[in-house]
Amino acid sequence: MEALKQRAIELLEKGEVKAVLGYAKGTGQARRAFFARQPGQVDKLVLDEACTQNLAAYATKHEVKKLGRVAIVAPPATQRALIQLMAERQLRDGDLAILAVDEGAIKELGSAAALEEHLALKAQGLDAKDKTLLAKLDAMSREDRWAYWQNEFSRCMKCYACRNSCPMCYCEHCTMDCNRPQWVPVASHSIGNLEYHMVRTMHLAGRCVECGDCGRACPVGIPVHLLTISAEETVHELFGQRAGAKAKLDYALSTFKTDDKESFIR
C-alpha cells in the first residue's frame, strides 16, 4: 500500500498522470472509486479485500479521458479488462499507467506487452461462490432453470447498472438504446427483461473478463454475472480462447475453424 501511495505521489508530482484512479473509503464498509488528482489526495487511497469494483469501466469514459493520462489501480480482473480494451482498440497502448496489484504486490506496467506477459503468468479462476451457483444451475432441470431466471428477472427494472458497470460495455450506442428497429423493448416487462439479458450475454460471450462486476452492481441482486461468465466459459471450452489475455484482438466470434466441433446441427 505504501509503495502504491508513493508511486502515485511521484506520478502526480512529475506530471506523468493527471489523476490516479484507485479506491477510497466509502459508505460504511464499502470502498469506492476515487480519482486522486493532487498528491495531497493520495492519502485517501486504500487497498483491501473490499476493493472489488472493476475500475477499467472508467477508462473509456469521456469524462475520464478528458482528464488526461490517468494511472489506474488494477487488480487481476481489471488487468484483464484493460488488455481486452486494448485488444478492442478502445485504449491505446500507453494511454494509462497501470498499477497492477496482485495479492498486495504492486507492479507498474508501462505497455500492453508487459501487461500481456504479466497476465500470462497467472491462472484465471472462478470465484468459489460463483462456481457453486453455476454448478447448481447446471444441475437444474431445464424447466427449473427457466423458472429460476424468470423469477430473478422479475426484479429487473432495466436500470442498466450491469451494463454501465461493465468495462466491456463501452458502446456509444448500445443496442438497447437503438430503436430503428427496436429489437429489444425498452419496457422492463418480462419479455423485455429476458431479451435484454440474452442480448447482453451474447454481446459479452468471448469478451467477458469474468470480473463479476455486473452481478455486484445489480441493486436487486440478480446474479447476471453468471450469464456472462457461463457464456465466456462456453467460448473457452469450445474454442480454447479467453478474453482478457492478449493485447491483439482474438475474438472467438469473429473467426472460425473449419473443424469447429458441434453435435447438434442436422
Binding site: 432453470r145 427457466w146 450475454t201 450469464l227 457464456a231 462456453t234 469450445l238 458441434e262
Partner: peptide, 13 residues
C-alpha cells in the same frame, strides 16, 4: 460458431 454459443446461452436461460 455463433449458434454453438447461442445454443448454450439459451440452455442456461
Amino acid at each position: 460458431r455463433r449458434w454453438m454459443v447461442f445454443k448454450k446461452m439459451m440452455e442456461v436461460m
